[in-house]
Design a protein around this nucleic acid. Structure first.
Length: 880
RNA sequence: GCCCAGGUGGUGGAAUGGUAUACACAGCAGACUUAAAAUCUGCCGCCGCGAGGCUUACCGGUUCGAGUCCGGUCCUGGGCACCA
């Protein structure tokens, strides 16, 4: 039956459309296929394959959705994961959500909507976007830090820290941010030109004494430094952590006071060798001995100074421009233990109470700060360290090493020797000892906010604390030394819940508004906070109910919540065994998976997240919960993707690139591959939408190499009966080698360039073997998985290309029979020739000398030297 | 101020001490097309008609030969910032 004109038009159109490169259609199709076939489900630890654990820093699911920077790192890890899977590894590539935190709570304050609702919406959007880009993620292991099944274990780890005396309460002044209504960790405060600001939101912050939970990370300072040695991390990140921890080795030296018999001043110094040059001392204005040190004659001046310092805004105190030293003499004198000299004791705000002992010995000749102070107040400057060339320490300080001078018995010795000897002498006299100090401070671990993990802790009276039975179940987490603090002037003790009562979930609250006084929204919920607490098993009942029995005492829950860093400290462990209700992960899974083999994320987490996570991991190792001491063996930071204007992407600059639009217009494969083609993964590089057409062209050319665009069938160029050129075979083998190598070393941009080179050669070939097209497709699959799956299927395969293995190359096919050799005269290229790769040196030199272009520059001059690099070049050195 | 990373065409970038500018974008010219898109071919660092000369931020050094190694200077980006 003859078809109507309309029908035949439709048939032609359908036939045509079967071969069309319709990325939207097949991207959706293959994403559905991966989902329904659980293609990326991780195999159990018993599968017998070697494991490979590739981890992305999980995102905070913000309301703005993914920006173009997210998929950069995720694509890199996905390529690596897919490559390892093809190479026979059992790959774990999970994803989750760091979903507690301020933005969702700010949204809740503004709208009254529960932060969990907003969080869920944002997570759904993030998941949709990630799936749209086609990442090979095992979604069955997805987790969220806000899930009570997850944070149950965050609370459990906190209680372990509490049990081991690593969690305590402090009321020292802390950084408080009125705008955010919460305190911030030191690490979350930035020093800016405008003064100290919150890292999140850039709001002004101030020091306030507020009761806080603190984790004793300083107990791990040494272990955190030592652990760095074994890690395959960027050097700059290791250095950053090392500097942040800031270990200084030196001595504590005790100075007797001339007129105050029973008191002394102890200082910390890294330069005990310069003790003979100590011409004065300085104590911090907050130093506890300041009033005793101050003589009546100086009292007025000192009091004025201390008041001025206290009232000095933080803005002024951290002002970077004004480094002028200020200070006041206390009226007291100390005795230098090495020479008995009487030296004046000053107070000045350049000495910090929070570091060392809050007091220093000042050696102006050899310390810049002391020198500036001495110049300001006309204090003596005595040189005790010599130099090769004569110097005048009255003009500027000398901070380098040299032989000792003006130092009695130590004259002529090196600084290093003197350090040892002086410290030993002082130790013998009981006037000093070796000492170590760290810049690292303990980790401020509580926030006065709603949207975080509640502390599984209650406060009870000291009297009730003494009544805890010896066999009480709460002893599971009870520390040896009680953690105490003052609440409303009453001393109270902290008691834990037991594992049976975990998780402790957040109550519904009337208001999410933080109070300007620094109280958490939870503190306004007496039904939740005020409870009867059973001191024999940790159970709780609201105080609005009658007292259930004699062992039930009055208790108040801790109303602070944990900071966002808590949940991200251990999430990489939960992926190993996400459904486990008995342990945070089973020993079997911990032993099989060990640590992530590869961890990728932004350099902005170089100190905070990566230091906190290392601390928790090391602690869990010490208490035998984990088999390894360090969490992240190999770490990589992807560079920032900048806006098209070369500036950092931001809403205010209006240069944000939305991945949704790129995927819609160019496809997920093109987005992935282009992100990798932009430049080296670690470099910051500007996005440029124009450039993506190069990748789109490449993908369509790959499509056409395999598929006939009119029929949708296999390209008629594919023919196993005809031999391919030596050039094509060599380029294919070269590409397999380079792409494999470059994926291993994360040089994705050059891997893609090499595939483009192969494309340029392959397209010129009138016929292609099926195996050539198949190898090429398998190489491209980790980069552009959707189109490669589609090609693979059209080539007649029933299984997914992820099951197809990784192509292998033949080393013997890489060698060329002829090579290009360069002829140089005096290092300048004058000619190039193609020669047999086995040509003898003599023949090569003869060839070079016979070359007219070479002869022209030899110009009959005598050849002084002949350099011959086989297969590369010949260089004649001539006079003149 | 101190520590670190980096400066290569119009643009993104590539180069075990051995042909600098691979691969791509943009641009120019041409083919196909009624036309456009798509596709394909060629050209494409700077000066010079040419021979040739110059060129990897700048200055110097090592070397037969330097983007690459060494010393110094300048610039850009990141981190730290009175830590004794």
């Amino acid at each position: 039956m003859p078809a109507s004109p309309q029908l035949s038009y439709l048939l032609i159109f359908m036939e045509h459309s079967q071969g069309v490169y319709d990325f939207t259609a097949f991207e959706q199709r293959w994403q559905a296929y991966w989902k329904s076939h659980s293609t990326f489900r991780t195999e159990p630890s018993t599968c017998g394959k070697p494991k490979y654990y590739v981890l992305d820093m999980f995102p905070y699911p913000s309301g703005a959705g993914l920006h173009i920077g997210h998929p950069e790192g995720y694509t890199a890890s996905d390529i690596l994961g897919r490559y390892k899977k093809a190479s026979g590894f059992n790959v774990l590539h999970p994803m989750g959500w760091d979903a507690f935190g301020l933005p969702a709570e700010q949204h809740a304050i503004a709208t009254g909507e529960h932060p969990a609702l907003q969080t869920r919406k944002n997570i759904d959007n993030f998941r949709r976007q990630l799936q749209m880009i086609g990442f090979g993620i095992d979604w069955e292991r997805e987790l969220s830090t806000t899930d009570e099944k997850y944070f149950r274990w965050t609370q459990w780890i906190f209680l372990k820290l509490f049990r081991h005396g690593l969690a305590y309460v402090s009321e020292k002044p802390v950084w408080f941010c009125p705008a955010l209504g919460t305190v911030l960790a030191n690490e979350e405060v930035l020093n800016t030109k405008e003064g100290p600001r919150s890292e999140r939101g850039n709001h002004p912050v101030e020091r306030r004494p507020i009761r806080q939970w603190v984790l004793r990370i300083t107990a791990y300072a040494d272990k955190l430094i030592e652990g760095l040695d074994s890690l395959d991390w960027p050097d700059s990140t290791k250095r950053l952590q090392k500097n942040w921890i800031g270990k200084s080795e030196g001595a504590e030296v005790k100075f007797e006071l001339a007129d105050i018999p029973n008191e002394s001043l102890t200082v910390f110094t890294t330069r005990p060798d310069t003790l003979f040059g100590a011409t004065y001392m300085v104590v911090a204005p907050e130093h506890p001995l300041i009033s005793k040190l101050t003589t009546s004659a100086q009292k007025a001046d000192v009091d004025t100074y201390i008041a001025a310092v206290r009232n000095k805004s933080d803005l002024e105190r951290t002002d970077l421009a004004d480094k002028k030293k200020t200070g006041v003499f206390t009226g007291s004198y100390a005795i230098n233990p090495v020479n008995g000299n009487k030296i004046p004791v000053w107070t000045a705000d350049y000495v910090l109470m929070s570091y060392g002992t809050g007091a220093i010995m000042a050696v102006p000749a050899h310390d810049i700060r002391d020198w500036e102070f001495a110049k300001e107040f006309n204090l003596p400057i005595i040189q005790v360290v010599g130099s090769k060339e004569p110097i005048d320490v009255q003009e500027k300080p000398w901070t380098e090493d040299g032989p000792m001078v003006n130092s009695g018995a130590f004259n002529g010795l090196s600084a290093t020797e003197t350090k040892k000897k002086i410290t030993a002498d002082l130790t013998n006299k009981g006037q000093g000892k070796l000492a170590v100090n760290f810049k690292l401070r303990d980790w401020l671990f509580s926030r006065q906010r709603y949207w975080g993990e509640p502390f599984p802790i209650l406060w009870i009276s000291k009297t009730d604390y003494a009544k805890i039975p010896a066999d009480s179940e709460i002893r599971e987490f009870l520390p040896k030394e009680a953690v105490t603090c003052q609440i409303n002037g009453v001393e109270v003790c902290a008691v834990p819940l037991t594992s049976k009562q975990l998780p402790l979930i957040l109550p519904e609250v009337k208001s999410y508004q933080p109070s300007p006084t620094g109280d958490s929204p939870l503190s306004k919920e007496p039904e939740w906070t005020e409870v009867w607490y059973n001191i024999s098993n940790g159970e709780t009942v609201a105080q609005s109910k009658p007292q259930p029995g004699p062992l039930w005492i009055k208790a108040s829950r801790e109303t602070n919540t944990m900071p966002q860093w808590a949940g991200s400290c251990w999430y990489y462990l939960r992926y190993l065994d996400p459904q486990n209700t008995k342990e945070l992960a089973s020993a079997e899974n911990l032993n099989y998976w060990g640590n992530p083999d590869f961890y990728i994320g932004g350099a902005e987490h170089a100190v905070l997240h990566l230091l906190y996570a290392r601390f928790w991991h090391r602690f869990l190792y010490d208490i035998k919960v984990l088999p390894t001491p360090e969490p992240f063996k190999k770490l990589f930071h992807q560079g920032l993707i900048l806006g098209e204007d070369g500036e950092k992407m931001s809403k205010s600059r209006g240069n944000v690139v939305n991945p949704d639009i790129i995927v819609k217009e160019h496809g997920a494969d093109a987005l992935r591959m282009y992100l990798m083609f932009l430049g080296p993964l670690e470099a910051s590089k500007p996005w440029n939408t124009d450039g993506i057409s190069g990748i789109t062209r490449f993908l369509r050319r790959l499509w056409r190499l395999a598929v006939d665009e009119t029929t949708g069938n296999i390209s008629h160029k594919i023919n196993d009966g005809v031999n391919e050129t030596e050039e094509l075979v060599r380029e294919l083998n070269r590409t397999i080698k380079k792409v494999s190598h470059d994926i291993e070393t994360l040089q994705f941009n050059t891997a893609i360039s090499q595939m483009m080179i192969l494309m340029n050669v392959a397209e010129k070939s009138p016929t292609l073997k099926r195996s050539t097209v198949e190898d090429f497709t398998r190489l491209a699959a980790p980069f552009a998985p959707h189109v490669c799956e589609e090609i693979w299927q059209r080539l007649g395969h029933k299984e997914s290309i992820t099951q197809a293995g990784w192509p292998k190359y033949d080393e013997s096919k890489l060698i060329e029979s002829t090579v290009d050799v360069v002829f140089q005269v005096n290092g300048k290229v004058r000619a190039t020739t193609k020669v047999d790769k086995n040509i003898s040196k003599e023949a090569l030199v003869a060839l070079a000398k016979a070359d007219p272009a070479v002869q022209k520059f030899l110009d009959g001059k005598p050849i002084i030297k002949e350099i011959i690099v086989p297969g590369k070049l010949v260089n004649f050195v001539v006079a003149g």
